[in-house]
Amino acid sequence: GSSFFRDMHNWFLPFDAEHSRIAPLLEGNALMKQLLETIGPQLCNSDRYSFILSVESIPSALRGSAMGAMGGELEAMKEQMRADVPTGDADKLDAAIKGYLQDLYRFYKVYERKNEFDDIFCTTISPDLPLIGRYMQKRETLLHIAEFLFRRKHYEEAANLYAELTDGKGSTDTTLLQKWGFSLQQQGRYEEALAAYTRAELIDTENEWLLRRMAHCYRLLHRPAEAADIFTQLFERHPDEAALLLQKGNALVEDGQYNEALKSFFQYEFSVEDAAKARRPIAWCLFLTGQYERACDYYGMILDSDSNLTFTDRLNAGHTALAMGRIAEAIDHYQIGQKLTPGGKTEFLAAYTADMPALLAAQVDETTIRLIPEVLRLHPL
């Protein structure tokens, strides 16, 4: 088959079973024809020619057994390939694009004179080519390109196209608005993503995927109260989805609404058999709202039953003991916490220092707060 591919134009020749070079190979070979019908749709044009011409490289004495071996797998191949045959217009277009790109790729990578050309697959190709410019501006073409980029996670380029396709306040295609928002969100452009999602949600108010995405953006934009409102809406629709109560509670904690957060966490605790996920946020909210005895109970449960303790658990248990005036107990927690800290004393003391405002708010004596680090520095690990 190598002589066939020495002619450059044959790399891009549309497949024709009657072509003079391959017709003799197919003539009288029913099995080869069946194989071609089965796997042909999955191959680009040059691969089809190459597949048939490869038979020539098999010694004539072995051709029968080689074809028989392939024939034995024919039914299995047919079943597998049947599900992959494109049906809709979009799928057929995707298949045509894929086939052309495969032909192009094989030419630049396999053609024996490939070193005489600049490999376009090693460079960035601008879509602003004069030859195809008039086609690129058609809405239908832009939709296909945007979808192609979106599915392959080229979110920046996809977002630019979706911005153009949804331009104008009158755009009511919520699918495009959602994909535009998602493409922006994946780039960390949360304000813009939220604007796109909001436009879509105004049209499709019942779309829960949108609501969840909006809540995520609100939290990343440090607007937790709005995220909490969305989690409330979602829980009203799905009272069996207890995880929404955790998400709502966490958003309320971020907003400083600790008592409201506690209500949400307690509701979660009441709703599930294993409420271990709520223990840490409940304990911390109890501490922040001055309910030290109850916070101490929860930290006791965490320290007794959780096998994945972190230094933060000991740090917060220490804060609670300190707020209750149990200084020796607090120091014990802190000392154990230091041993659990990946960064040792330095990291632990930095975390302690960051929590000083919370300790002051808990009316712990300022002198005590400042002496604790000195005690910890002097104590050997």
Rank of each mutant, 00 (worst) to 15 (best):
P224T: 08
C44P: 04
R82V: 06
D128Y: 15
Y352H: 09
L177I: 04
K248H: 07
R279F: 08
G71S: 01
Q80A: 12
D167S: 13
S264P: 02
G344C: 02
Y135S: 08
A278V: 09
E116A: 14
L360S: 12
T289P: 01
E75V: 11
T38V: 15
L143P: 00
D313M: 00
S126Y: 03
L262Y: 10
N207Q: 03
N29P: 02
S171Q: 02
L220P: 02
Q185G: 08
P357F: 11
G88R: 10
A159D: 03
E269A: 14
A96H: 05
D173T: 06
I52P: 01
T346L: 10
R199M: 07
G1T: 11
A200V: 01
R219W: 05
F266D: 13
A146I: 08
D7R: 15
R134E: 10
A228C: 11
G343L: 12
R151F: 05
A215V: 08
E18R: 11
F107E: 08
G256W: 05
A350L: 12
E157S: 11
G133K: 15
Q233N: 12
T232Y: 06
A330K: 01
A242C: 04
L149V: 03
I22N: 05
G99R: 10
R189S: 08
N160W: 05
I52L: 06
H333I: 01
L176E: 09
A358Q: 13
E192F: 05
E140Y: 03
F348G: 02
P14C: 07
D255G: 14
D119L: 06
L359F: 09
E164G: 05
